[in-house]
Design a protein around this nucleic acid. Structure first.
Length: 993
RNA sequence: GCCCCGGUAGCCCAACCGGCAGAGGCAAUCGGCUCAAACCCGAUCCAGUAUGGGUUCGAAUCCCAUCCGGGGCACCA
């Protein structure tokens, strides 16, 4: 038995070469480079001024600013699975690529750390939410750092940091201190009316005092400020408070007893449950904070034209805002003779998008909650049909019964009943203003109080829903629009399409013969002239309900004075920290207890709630607002914080603004680089589509307020949005339907899936603990290394597509990196194997073709195809006897954005002493992109029959001659008459016989 | 019910303005390396593009209809 000479690696597994790119070596390399990057500040983004410089201590130079961002992660206690980092890797690849293209790249990541899950997790584990949240952030930071993300770690933060909360509250105060002037000029607007913007509340006060505008809610024209002067200071404050963009209002809100808080409309699903927790949601009248996002409805819709977002998300925002144009029309309500003369002269206003069909309005419908129903006639009027009364003796009974029935219906039941028309006659009669006809007024729950005016004119001839109702309640149908060619003889139903108006005239106006658009215009003019209506626009969007009754959120920077009016806490006293309370668990209720009322946890600390302060008018006692802000508040402005993350150096040092205006203009202003649009904003924002109408709408709203107040120059926060797909996973169940450990299942589609020989059932969906199919990044680092993990995630498919995770396929990415390694490093000795020979022409061609292609793919966010081309080129190099340095160095650079650690290691071993992070990305040399010859395909009747090698610059005539001479082609033509020859030089000839 | 996106090899996916259906990866099969196995290396196999029509010299690509999958909206006047 002889002893080998080598002393290394005594274990039996030592057959593996010492210098092979194994997971263990990968880990070693990766951790070394992560430390070096951190020490050197390699990814420090340089601001144009101030203390935040690049790793060499320099402020921003000539490179174009490029601001790239991921959607704010929430630090979950469950830790990351391999699906979470997909977007982070993608932005990292783009960021590193842009950096190598010479851009000044800003990429950082903060944490969205307030919110319900943190609070629930804390309650479960019996710890303070701050403790658990901070622990989670530490874990997540470690997991993300190990992935090698090129983030500027000086710019990270969490929304719960007091320095951050301070500015969230500061922005709230700016919104509180503003009102919306729809007539004010807005400079620079190119897509809207150019009017309307937020202004300071003090300007409103001045204008009211000077008599420049009437006082809202008070009669009189306020000439010379007379109306204003007559008001007490308390009344004046009420007037101003009601105009603020952040205001307190008593109105129907979504109360969720199961969560113990009220919710915004956006947080309630279509079937009336909470998006988080899936608890029932009830409508309650409560006094709550709201934000006047409706004032921005037009701009939020119009400005979508200025930004590069997926059409799908734009459509979702447009739908949610739901702008529709039409007219408001007032119908006089007739006091039923003898029974209710006092009701005469009352009016009901309806909203319609089809005022051109007014002559076909044969009845009216109001929502069950409509105030008209607070009083109804005592008896059924003459002409009441049996079908209308619901069997009740008089309108009061009928309406009361119907209102009760409607109120008791849950959203789910309403949903289920959609299409089935229920309702009852209210006893009221109204007069159609265009023809003087008396029409009955019904109430029905297909008309919603929250949209338009809560009342409609019903045109059964032109509206499916009205027609269904008319059928059910025996009401007349009049068609006022005739389709081209007239109605079919047997036509019965509503016609809502294009056509010519019919049956639409009175003594003063005739719409007959007009098209829909023109008829609308005419009738609106007539209504306006008669003073019974006017053109208008309504929105589906409602104001944003902003207060929550939870503990783990930003407290409102608001005090209530002795007369219960809100007072802003001065900016220099911010932040308002969360108080310690005996119990931070929210008061929750039986999820179905609609009668319960919210109770804010912050109210449990009396010492905190009651304060004595001198706000300039002597010490007074105040009561603090005990609401907290919704989770969305922190994510409404975090992109600004990345630009200017400290309060000690740049802009916020002065305490006057949330971000230094110069920094905002540099990184985000309109046209701040070659690809930034007219609205400016973040250059690339990557995240899931689930925030399409929540976060993205709220953030746009806040940004526009800040724009109006002069704090930012960009019109929009996010210039380009990209929705990444999700990584899905297979889960397996046994016969009992219980989930089994996915990692232990063997087999495939053809052989069937089994666990320990027992067949199991496969399903496809999310990755989750309960599904027993979670794979974590940590497992990937251990088994393959971060670079392999990154390559695999990027090569699985296009970024915007969801795809299944398959651990056993990861090995393909590892083989690629191993082959690349072997092309540079000898596995046995660790020595360099590259030569200094010049690459042959074929290699140069392959290289430059690859460079050109990879650039294209990278610029278009297609890392999957870029990787395929890199693999192809690497395979070409593998086939050479010796790999020339000049052939592999560009490859190392091109691989760097995707597998940065391996690339840095090879780059160093190739003799470079600086990081390749800012090395120029290879550029293709045109001379190697043109081929000497190309293969021209010759088709006969569209079928490929032969090929000829020709020069790329061959003329059509020469090519046609060459094609016709090709033996296989001659045989295919077989002497038939040639009818036509299509020549697309130099690649294709098609011969038609 | 309405709107949007997508169906290409056993699986994940390429194919630019309509021009040779295949770039890449997984799996499978065979071979090499090995005492042997794994790793590794090399090779091979595999679809006529969901279905039916249309336009065209030529269709995965454009148009129409249908089926399947995913998503959004859902009495919004």
């Amino acid at each position: 038995m002889s002893t080998p000479e080598t002393t290394s690696a005594p274990s039996p597994a030592s057959a593996t070469p010492t210098h092979r790119y194994t997971p263990a070596l990968a880990q070693q390399i990766e951790e070394r480079w992560q430390d070096r990057w951190e020490e050197r500040g390699t990814f420090h983004a340089a601001n144009p001024q101030g203390a935040l410089t690049d790793g060499d201590g320099a402020n921003a130079g000539a490179g174009q600013p490029f601001f790239i961002m991921d959607m704010f992660p929430y630090p979950s206690g469950a830790g990351l699975h391999v699906g979470h980092p997909l977007g982070y890797i993608a932005t990292d690849v783009v960021g590193r690529f842009r950096m190598m293209c010479g851009d000044n790249v800003l990429h950082a990541l903060g944490y969205d750390a307030f919110g319900l899950p943190a609070e629930q997790y804390a309650v479960q584990t019996g710890q303070h939410p701050r403790t658990t949240t901070e622990q989670n952030i530490v874990t997540m930071k470690r997991q993300l750092r190990r992935m090698g993300l090129a983030h500027d770690d000086r710019r990270t933060f969490a929304t719960i940091d007091p320095d951050y909360v301070r500015w969230t509250q500061w922005i709230f105060l700016q919104i509180f201190d503003s009102w919306y002037d729809p007539d004010a000029e807005r400079p620079g607007d190119t897509v809207g009316t150019g009017r309307g913007r937020a202004r300071r509340i003090s300007e409103l006060r001045d204008e009211l005092a000077a008599g420049a505008r009437p006082v809202p809610g008070h009669d009189g024209d306020n000439a010379g400020g007379a109306v204003w002067a007559a008001l007490s200071e308390a009344e004046r404050r009420d007037v101003l408070d009601a105009q603020r963009l952040a205001y307190v209002d008593s109105s129907p809100v979504n109360w969720c007893p199961g969560l113990g808080t009220v919710l915004a409309n956006e947080e309630v699903t279509a079937d009336g449950r909470s998006e988080r927790g899936n608890f029932p949601v009830f409508t309650r009248h409560l006094r709550q904070w709201k934000m006047r996002i409706t004032a921005y409805a037009d701009r939020l819709t119009d400005d979508l034209a200025l930004i590069d977002w997926p059409d799908k998300v734009k459509a979702m925002q447009r739908n949610w805002i739901g702008r529709s144009t039409g007219a408001n029309v007032r119908f006089a309500v007739v006091g039923t003779t003898g029974t209710d003369p006092a009701g005469a002269g009352e009016q009901v206003e309806v909203f319609t998008t089809r005022p051109d069909t007014l002559f076909g309005a044969t009845f009216m419908v109001v929502a069950p909650e409509h105030p008209l129903l607070d009083e109804v006639p005592a008896d059924w009027p003459d002409g009441t049909r049996d079908a209308w009364t619901g069997g009740h003796r008089n309108p009061a009974e009928a309406v009361a019964a119907y209102r009760a029935e409607a109120a008791a219906k849950t959203a789910v039941e309403r949903q289920a009943d959609a299409g089935k028309k229920t309702g009852v006659f209210t006893g009221h009669l109204a007069v159609n203003p265009v023809n003087g006809e008396t029409v009955p007024v019904f109430t029905a729950d297909y008309v919603l109080m929250g949209y338009g005016t809560g009342a409609i004119m019903a045109v059964p001839g032109g509206d499916e829903r009205d027609f269904a109702f008319a059928e059910a309640y025996d009401l007349p149908v009049v068609h006022t629009v005739e389709p081209d060619g007239g109605f079919a003889d047997d036509f019965a139903g509503a016609y809502s399409g294009e056509g010519r108006a019919i049956n639409s005239s009175n003594d003063e106006i005739s719409l007959d013969g007009l098209g829909v658009a023109e008829a609308k215009e005419r009738i609106i003019a007539w209504l306006e002239a008669k003073g019974v209506g006017e053109g208008t626009t309504t929105y589906r969007l409602n104001d944003w309900l902003f207060s929550r009754q939870r503990y783990w959120g930003e407290p409102f920077p608001i005090l209530w004075d002795s007369e219960d009016r809100p007072v802003a806490i001065p900016a220099e006293l911010l932040p308002v920290d969360l108080p310690d309370v005996p119990d931070y668990a929210p008061r929750t209720f039986d999820p179905d207890d609609a009668e319960s009322s919210p109770e804010a946890p912050l109210g449990r600390n009396d010492d905190w709630v009651h304060v004595t302060l001198d706000l300039g008018d002597g010490p007074k006692t105040y009561r603090r607002d005990t609401n907290t802000m919704p989770n969305w508040a922190g994510s409404c402005w975090y992109y600004l914080r990345y630009l200017d993350p400290t309060d000690s150096t740049d802009g916020p040092a002065t305490g006057t603004a949330v971000v230094d205006p110069g920094l905002e203009r540099y990184w985000m202003g309109p046209q701040h680089n070659a690809t930034s649009g007219p609205a400016g904003g973040v250059d690339l924002y990557v995240g899931g589509v689930e925030h399409a109408v929540l976060h993205l709408l709220y953030a746009r709203f806040w940004h526009k307020v800040l724009f109006d107040l002069g704090y930012v120059s960009s019109l929009e926060p996010f210039g380009k949005l990209f929705n990444q797909g999700y990584i899905q996973a297979y889960a397996y169940t046994d016969d009992r339907g219980a989930y089994v450990n996915a990692a232990d299942v063997t087999g495939d589609e053809q052989t069937g899936f089994t666990l320990d020989g027992v067949p199991v059932h496969r399903e496809y969906g999310k990755m989750g603990k309960s599904l027993k199919n979670v794979v974590t990044p940590d497992e990937m680092y251990e088994a393959y290394g971060a670079d392999t993990f990154r390559v695999y995630e990027m090569s699985m498919g296009p970024l915007d597509l969801s795809r299944p995770w398959e651990t056993r396929a990861v090995v393909g990415s590892q083989r690629f990196l191993q082959r690349l390694w072997r092309n540079v490093v000898d596995e046995e000795t660790g020595a360099l194997v590259v030569t200094d020979d010049a690459p042959d022409t074929a290699t140069l061609r392959a290289l430059h073709r690859t460079i050109a292609d990879v650039r294209t793919e990278m610029e278009s966010l297609r890392p999957n195809t870029a990787i395929a081309k890199l693999i192809t080129y690497n395979n070409h190099l593998t086939g050479l006897d010796r790999v020339p340095r000049a052939a592999v160095e560009p490859l190392v650079l091109m691989v760097a954005p995707i597998a940065p650690h391996l690339a840095e290691e090879l780059w160093e071993r190739l003799g470079h002493d600086r990081s390749l992070a800012r090395e120029p990305f290879p550029a293709a040399d045109e001379q190697y992109l043109v081929e000497d010859t190309v293969t021209c395909v010759v088709q006969v009747k569209g079928k490929v029959r032969g090929r000829v090698e020709v020069s790329p610059s061959i003329s059509d005539e020469d090519l046609q001659a060459a094609a016709l001479a090709e033996p296989n082609v001659v045989r295919a033509i077989d002497g038939a008459e040639i009818r036509k020859v299509i020549v697309r030089a130099p690649k294709l000839v098609n011969i038609v016989v």
